[in-house]
Structures are given as C-alpha cells and as structure tokens.
Amino acid sequence: MGRPGDRPSVITARGLRKSFEVKGGATVEAVRGIDLEVPAGQAFGFLGPNGAGKSSTMRMIACVSPRTSGELRILGRDPAVDGVAIRARLGVVPQQDNLDEELSVRENLFVYGRYFGLPRARCWQRADELLEFAQLTEKSGAKVENLSGGMKRRLTIARSLMNEPEVLLLDEPTTGLDPQARHVLWDRLFRLKQQGVTLILTTHYMDEAEQLCDRLVVMDGGVLVAEGSPAELIAGYSTREVLELRFVPGEQTAAEPLVAGLVERVETLPDRLLLYTPDGDRTLAEVTERGVRPVSALVRRSTLEDVFLHLTGRSLVD
C-alpha cells in the first residue's frame, strides 16, 4: 500500500499493532496490524467510527504510546529509540484542549515554546506571529478560561506550531465547533499545507475530510478497510450518484421489490430508499415507469459519507 513518490516518507508503518491491558486482565486490541505510508507535504486523514483505533494510531505516531508490535518510522526514525528527537519536530493538536486556563493566551504559547528549548525572546516573538496567524492578537492578554470554544481550538493549533513542526497531528480538530469557526480553522490548515507542513488528521466529518485531505484511510475495528483520495474512494466504494426516494415511513418496504434489479445496490432506511446508480435521473424515470410513487425524490452526487456508511455500517458503535 502507499504510492512511492519523489518525496520521502514522513510516516511508515508495517503491521503496526497496539493492545492494552484493561481492568480485569483482559486485552483490548485497539490497532490490529496496519500499513501506512505518508509522503512529506501530504494531508492525510483517518476516518472511522469511535473505537476504530484512530486515536491509538495517532498516539503511536505522536510518540506518546509505545507500539505493541510491528514497524513504525516517523521522519525516518524509530519512536521507541528516538521519541524525544521526533517529538521535537512534531506539532500535536489533541482531541481535548489541554491549555492552561489560568495563564493568558500569550503566556500559553510562550510556555509551550520553552518545552522545545526555544530561547525566551524567540518564544515571545513566535507567540505574537502565531497569535496573528490564529486571529487571536486582540485576545493576547486574556485568560484562556474566558475564550470561546473556537478560540481555544485556534490557540491549541497556534500552540502546536510554536516549534515550526514538519508534521502536524490533529485529532478531531473541529469537533464541537460552529460552522464559522470550522471554516476559519480549515483556512488556517490549508495555509499550513501550502507551506509544506505534513498534516495528519482524524475526523468524523466527511466534508472536512473532502476539504482537507489528499489521501484518506478508513479504519474500522483496528484495521484499514479502504484507502485512497476522496474521489478514488467514492469511485471505488460508491456510485457516481444516489437517488433518494422518500416515503411515508413504512411504505418504502412495499416499493423495495419494485426497484430491485434496477441498480447495483439499494439501501432501505426507515423512511427512504437509497438507490446507488451511475445516472440518477435515468433511474428515477425507470422507477416512475414501474409505478413507484414516492413522496419526494432527490438525485445527488455520491459523497464520502456514503462510502463511510457503506464501509463501516449504520449501526451505532458506542
């Protein structure tokens, strides 16, 4: 897996595994042997339901979780040996913010720069640059506890950039944010990508994955179930279009046998039939010809969400 390019690999994994001992002595296998190859400068996404093993993988890549077995190289080095040196070149945006709420916005950045051994003057200077980048200059002296969720997230991202990392790891960077805040964040991440920073992110949002990622893997149950660019995944795991037929709840089952055989895949939901088809309009005409009368019909393009639900199922995981 992975495609050899002219750019060197930032992350290479072969048969990477992680298992945890939980209370009672049982072992949970969070990651069950995955192969990864991420070239420098790429925006690489992990998609998957909760419990799929995304965060465990991210923690191994961040060198804060020793792998159970398999091979892993980050920036060409082994985390088990060179964790400290690797962490010096990474930026990490955790799933939950862990800023110091008592310190000011600017002090949070200063303190973080010191952990990377930057001189004090350089820390203050870099803090001011990043406050501008994160559109937080006006909040520079404010206590973190008084910031909105979106501001805290931007500050966490700014903080992760203090050491000018070559690789930025983002674990669900926009979960819980309003649409405006998400778009501002996407814009900032896009700029970083243009500057050549490798982005590794996990997300539940398909639009986020489509917006940001050059390449994606879908994880489920600790293994990779699909890999490719957003367009490749849609082409490989869904059809070009989806015809959604909406019914009074219950009546869709009666229509189900009528549309059978028209398209390669039909999905039955409580109030809808989803017909996966290369040409939605033509399929709608055929459906109408067969006497199916839905309350409403909608033809749309296939999205990553269709791929995701197809691969990982519709039932709740937790």
């Binding site: 060198c63 020793p66 792998r67 159970t68 077995s69 088990a80 040996v81 964790g83 400290v84 051994g117």
Partner: peptide, 17 residues
C-alpha cells in the same frame, strides 16, 4: 515482527532544559 517497548524507552533519552 519484533516486540518493542516493554519499558517506555521513549522516556529514556533526556531533553536538555
């Protein structure tokens, strides 16, 4: 396949300061 890190070797090297 080799087994790594029975002890957290990631902590072994020191970061000055």
């Amino acid at each position: 396949m080799t087994v790594h890190d029975t002890s957290p070797a990631t902590a072994a090297s020191r970061w000055p300061g």
